[in-house]
């Protein structure tokens, strides 16, 4: 099938970038919450999965796919805001460690809720992009599927939108201020609680989008996000947890590493790939403790 090893390399690079784009999207969702509140939302993946089921139900009721996904992102936003206000905030003041436990509890709750509502039979969700057998083009001989290109572009657009949100809007400035210093944010009149909740909401919407892009290729089931979420959190940590650009670079890097290891170090079984990816991340963090793009604080006193 492959004429030479160069073609094979290109193919693996393309596959790696495609998988990495999904990790990058989900990592972006994690970073948006982390920047504001310093918390890693373990329920992120399950929130996205739930929203993908919502999108699937909406398409079955006759709505166009793009509208269904958009509405599922709204559901993700509302879910994020609600979870922050009802579960996270009351706990945070009393016991920061409790937030972690609550997020894990939410993970299980949302997962089981999805089972209760939609059952365990796998469903489908159509792709936003052409994903038929012939929908690809050749790049140096390697097959590049249009769907993968679409996901990659969506991810880049999202990165640009987040950049604009953080640097060009008042609410983005408030989000950066809250991430930096909550006490001072209150003193300039920012309603810190709402800014944090909006961060969770934006993150919930991004997670919903990520899940909706992943579901057509991975199949929509309650297990949709389990693996990708692990890789996405690794990507966010690799990128520095508070940097959107870092999340994207981290996500793409992990996708590539994964594709190369599977392709070139094929004596390693599937499970071992995971360990190798994490070993590489550990080495990076030993050299750069704040991640590839994490902010290193400058503070003179």
């Amino acid at each position: 099938m492959f004429a030479n090893s160069f073609e094979l390399f290109i193919q693996r690079t393309v596959d790696g970038l495609a998988a990495g784009s999904i990790y990058a999207l989900l990592a972006l969702a994690l970073v948006v919450v982390f920047r504001g509140s310093g918390q890693l939302n373990f329920a992120q993946g399950e929130m996205g999965m739930f929203c993908a089921f919502v999108a699937s139900t909406l398409t079955l009721s006759g709505l166009p796919l793009w509208l269904s996904i958009l509405l599922s992102m709204v559901v993700g936003f509302v879910m994020g805001v609600g979870i922050e206000r009802v579960v996270i905030r009351p706990l945070e003041h009393k016991n920061p460690g409790g937030v972690l436990v609550a997020a894990i509890g939410l993970f299980l709750l949302i997962n089981q809720l999805a089972v209760a509502v939609w059952g365990v039979d796998p469903r489908g969700l159509a792709s936003l992009f052409p994903d038929g057998e012939d929908d690809f083009f050749r790049l140096f001989g390697a097959a590049v599927r249009w769907e993968r290109v679409g996901i990659f572009l969506v991810m880049l657009v999202l990165l640009a939108l987040l950049w604009a949100l953080f640097t060009k809007t008042k609410i983005g400035l408030a989000m950066r201020a809250v991430a930096n210093n909550q006490d001072s944010s209150r003193l300039v009149g920012i309603r810190v609680g709402w800014i944090l909740a909006i961060g969770w909401g934006v993150s919930g919407a991004i997670g919903a989008l990520g899940a909706a892009l992943l579901a057509p290729q991975a199949g929509l089931s309650q297990a949709l996000m389990l693996g990708p979420f692990v890789f996405a959190s690794a990507a966010a940590i690799l990128g520095g947890l508070d940097s959107p650009l870092g999340a994207v670079v981290g996500g793409l890097a992990i996708g590539l590493i994964q594709a190369y290891i599977v392709g070139y170090v094929n004596f390693l079984g599937g499970g071992m790939v995971l360990s190798v990816v994490f070993a590489i991340i550990l080495v990076v963090l030993l050299v750069r403790p704040s991640g590839l793009f994490g902010s290193q604080r400058v503070e003179r006193v």
Binding site: L173, A177, N180, N181, S184, V188
Partner: peptide, 19 residues
């Protein structure tokens, strides 16, 4: 002082006008 140490001087002033 309570300045926003990670934000630029410019952003510190802009956020001061949040209201």
């Amino acid at each position: 002082r309570g300045t926003f140490s990670d934000l630029t001087v410019h952003d510190n002033l802009m956020v001061g006008a949040f209201t």
